[in-house]
Design a protein around this nucleic acid. Structure first.
Lengths: 116, 116
DNA sequence: CAGAATCCACCGGGATACTG
DNA sequence: CAGTATCCCGGTGGATTCTG
C-alpha cells in the first residue's frame, strides 16, 4: 500500500480518531463512501450522485480512497471505457462510522433551515 | 465571529454525512472532542494533551467548535485568567461518532507498522 | 466514458511575537 | 494563563481544456 501523505499522525492519545478521520475527510470522501456502501458504481454514476463535484476532484478522491485500501477500482478494457468502483473489505468496515455520522447528521442538522 | 463558513453544504443525498463530518474535521477537532468527552478541561490542559497543536490553532478550533454549538466556553473573571471548556449536550451527542471513529482506528490502523 | 494536464485562487495551518 | 496579531507557505480544490 503506497504510503499516503496524510499519515501525518501527531499521535496524542486519541490518535486513532484522527487517523480514521484522515481517511474519510477531504470534502467528498465521506459521501463517496456513503454511496458506495449501497453498491458498486461507475465513475459517472458517482458523478451524478454528487452534482457539485468536478471530474478532477472525483478522480483524486477516488484515487486516495483506493490508495488507502478502502475502494477497489476495476477497469474494463472496452471501447467505451468502463470503470467500476466498489468498497474493499476494509472500506466496508467503515460502515458503522458512516452510519454513525449519518445518524448524527439526520438527528442534529437542521435539514429544513439549511436550505438558506 | 459567528459566521461559520463550512456551511458549504452541497447536499447530495447522503449529505448529513458531509454535514456531520464538516463539524468534526479540521485537523484537531476530532481529538479535542475526544478529550473533552472525558471531562471539562482548561485551555492549557488541552494544549498539554495535544503536544503538537499551536495556541493559535487550538484557539481557532475551539472557537469553531463553540460556534457550532458543540463546546461550551466558560470564562472566569480572575486575575490569572481561567477558561474552561466542556461539551454541550449537542457536543456530547457526538460520542457515538467519536467512539465509532476510535473503534475503527484502533482496529484498522497499523499502530505498530505506522512507525515506518 | 473516464480520465489527464494545466493554471490558479483560496485558506488552512505553522512560526513567531506581543498582551491583558 | 489564555489568548491576539502578523506573516507566510503549501496544499486543497475549482475551472477549463485536451485525450485514448
Amino acid at each position: 500500500m503506497p504510503r499516503i501523505k496524510h499519515s501525518n499522525f501527531d499521535c496524542s492519545p486519541g490518535c486513532p480518531v484522527e487517523g480514521a478521520l484522515s481517511l474519510i475527510d477531504g470534502k467528498w470522501k465521506g459521501v463517496i463512501l456513503y454511496h458506495l456502501l449501497e453498491g458498486t458504481l461507475r465513475f459517472n454514476e458517482i458523478r451524478r450522485k454528487l452534482p457539485n463535484v468536478t471530474q478532477r476532484m472525483l478522480t483524486l478522491q477516488l484515487r486516495e480512497l483506493e490508495a488507502d485500501g478502502l475502494v477497489l477500482r476495476k477497469v474494463f478494457a472496452q471501447v467505451p471505457p468502463r470503470v467500476e468502483y466498489s468498497l474493499t473489505e476494509r472500506g466496508r468496515s467503515l460502515a458503522p462510522v458512516i452510519a454513525a455520522l449519518k445518524a448524527w447528521g439526520d438527528a442534529n442538522l437542521p435539514r429544513s433551515a439549511e436550505a438558506a
